[in-house]
Design a protein around this nucleic acid. Structure first.
Lengths: 130, 130
DNA sequence: CAAAATAATAGTAATTGTTATTATTTTATA
DNA sequence: TATAAAATAATAACAATTACTATTATTTTG
């Protein structure tokens, strides 16, 4: 199936994601999208998020909370997951290309990417008011 | 609910997992377990795997294929996921404590663990016969 | 050791996140 | 504009997991 260069919903889903710094689930995107397209289907959201991530225009994350999350930033970077509030945030760390090269060596196969998730309690949740 | 010190099924699930070097899903454990306990329930397998991982006696992995996997080795270590055959294997790499310390610093919160998954094609799947 | 209390189990139903199906509408192209 | 292809909304189906319940196993208590 050839992909059309233009689809209102897909364009909108992509820019909706691009406008968020958190890492929303399909359901969160769906909630947002209904403001613009009150009749949009959850299936459309899922289909386009998967399509966009297959095309390499967005990234799918699995941080261990059971639901997929999505990230407009396709550049490799590491994430932090707060176990208390569930927030997923980017960390300003340089991805370790050497680590991946080392992993590839010991694996005996070929490695094209890696993911790193840090788990703990975010600044807000560790703060004095909690 | 207080946890009993002895339950045949739980003990057996734990030692079943301990005897495997792959990182089986609940369903794979279930298949194994039925040889010993033909009437064991899948719910029992799930409940005990979750219980054991909450107790810190085993580890739960989410490598992005939709199903949870389990690891008898609770020591921090990194994993390799083959996108072709789906195998999940351990990598002999020293976990980077400094990276976690660095992540904690930039996060502003507190971090107690991190996971690393490498993705690619394993030795067998990259080999000549494929 | 027997009886009472508590936890674990098998069997099953329910829930959740996600994907597939289908009739209809949108978009691209001639 | 007419035709073909792709995307959509609505809905059903699905797979992994969790919840429920009556019964059984284990522990505790007298």
């Amino acid at each position: 199936m050839k992909i059309l260069k233009y689809s209102r919903q897909r364009e909108s889903i992509k820019s909706c994601l691009a406008g968020r710094t958190d890492h929303p689930t399909a359901d969160m995107i769906y909630t947002d999208m209904r403001e613009l397209f009150p009749c949009i289907s959850l299936g459309t959201v899922y289909r386009n998020l998967n399509l966009l991530s297959e095309l390499g225009e967005i990234q799918k994350l699995t941080c261990g909370d059971g639901k997929d999350r999505f990230d407009w930033n396709t550049a490799p970077h590491y994430h932090f997951v707060c176990r208390r509030c569930g927030a997923v945030t980017d960390l300003p760390l340089i991805p370790l290309a050497e680590l991946q090269a080392q992993a590839e060596k010991v694996s005996g196969g070929s490695i094209d990417s890696h993911t790193v998730y840090f788990y703990g309690s975010c600044a807000r949740c560790s703060g004095p008011s909690s």
